[in-house]
Design a protein around this nucleic acid. Structure first.
Lengths: 243, 243
DNA sequence: GAGTGGTCTAGACCACCAA
DNA sequence: TGGTGGTCTAGACCACTCA
């Protein structure tokens, strides 16, 4: 009954990848944790070390795991210094690296409109949180973000929790909810500033802004965040690489 | 005399990668060609097949080589259907895939100003070609490109050659000059349309446009193209992914 | 059926880290 | 010194392509 298009063959290392991912979904190992050694995993899954190795290699290439020679293999985390800026692609034109400061504007509970629900794989009208904030570089307001997440996934989220948290938002999501963002898709346009944005970003109305729409995914490619960022790109650029 | 920071260790597969890259630079295998089989390369470099395999795996991950089971390993080419759109990140919002048509505006020979020279690793005042063109989707003009390449690398380039070439510009560079683009860095801003762009892209002056600056690299990370694209993003977006 | 890349294994040894 | 990941090898076998 094999259709010609059915895969009908699944390498062992691929099945190991799935098993490891399932452990990540289940929370057996949390962001920042070390996972068992290759030898231990090989024994657990009854395969050779080389096969575990290949599975981990691919997960490391996807930035889901991080290998450290001599120490072990770790679950990638946005709390680590090295990857706290992994999803922030706005950088100063002069090349100086600077981490922005965040001013939280509001946290509200809303019903997902059709568009948002579709992107987050929810029913229209499902409960979501909407977080609005303003990111500034050296006192220059540059990014106005509207961030939407399912209330069911982020039960109990409130403004004070975010305000009291020292790190980035994704680090906050990991620490308080065990949700790690591992991948995101962005769609970018140039748009004129509306009155509200113009005021927040201190530009004239109708000024060109970069509009960055993002859907972010956690383990198992589950969408858990939809955000729209409006960015004033004077002296700043969105930086990306392709190959 | 090893300093503590010097690498002082270079894996074999890494050296094999370099050797393969040198053959690509030398033009021993051109884009679209098959390279020798893993077994042949192992014999040539006097290492095991597994080591060659790891080297090729990494080059394939960088989109420099393409593996095809049962057929062989090939030098990646922009002439192939599958990768002709690899560096074009502007897509229709409705999801329909459409390849733009190109209208060549001009090809001129110029002297590189300091900024351009620096990006292309040339001396200020070095001879370069400047190609201007307009890309349209379904008759809608959307991207105005100004493309700069070193005249020394693209000897003899002229307008008629481009005009008569059926494929993409990068495919043209490969076919006529043996230069394959393998990587690019882009810096994106939102800017107001100037009078000339507004006219070409059929928008009102001062309308927001996406400005996409790109430096593209060939084998050995040598920069060989600097371009600026101005894009009218009505019904279109710049699409990217991160992990 | 011959040739290619793809998978899986087993084992030896190396580089790095921490105690 | 022991444990971790990293490299390299050799060999068996599988999946895919094409003549």
């Amino acid at each position: 009954m094999n259709t010609p298009t059915s895969p009908s063959f699944r390498p062992l290392y691929d099945q190991i990848k799935i098993l490891i991912t399932q452990s990540l979904i289940a929370g057996e190992w949390r962001p920042g944790d070390a996972i068992p050694s290759e030898i231990d995993l090989a024994a657990r899954f009854k395969v050779s070390q080389g096969t575990v190795r290949k599975a981990i290699d691919e997960l490391a290439a996807e930035n889901i795991l991080i290998r450290r020679q001599g120490k072990g293999t770790f679950v990638a985390s946005h709390s680590q210094e090295r990857s706290s800026t992994r999803f922030l692609r706005i950088a100063r034109d002069d090349g100086i690296t600077e981490y922005p400061s965040s001013r939280l504007l509001s946290v509200t509970r809303e019903r997902a409109p059709e568009h948002t629900a579709k992107l987050l794989d929810l029913r229209t009208g499902a409960s979501i949180f909407c977080i609005k904030r303003l990111l500034s570089f050296e006192g220059m307001p540059r990014i106005f973000d509207e961030i939407h997440v399912p209330a069911s996934t982020f039960k109990g989220l409130d403004e004070a929790m975010i305000r009291n948290f020292p790190g980035s938002l994704y680090s906050f999501f990991e620490t308080h909810f065990g949700i790690a963002m591992i991948r995101a898709e962005e769609h970018i346009k140039a748009v004129p500033a509306g009155p509200a944005e113009a005021d927040l970003l201190q530009v004239a109305p109708q000024s060109p802004l970069l509009r960055v729409d993002r859907v972010a995914f956690t383990y198992g490619d589950r969408p858990v965040e939809w955000r729209r960022g409006l960015c004033h790109t004077e002296r700043f650029s969105y930086v990306t690489e392709m190959s």
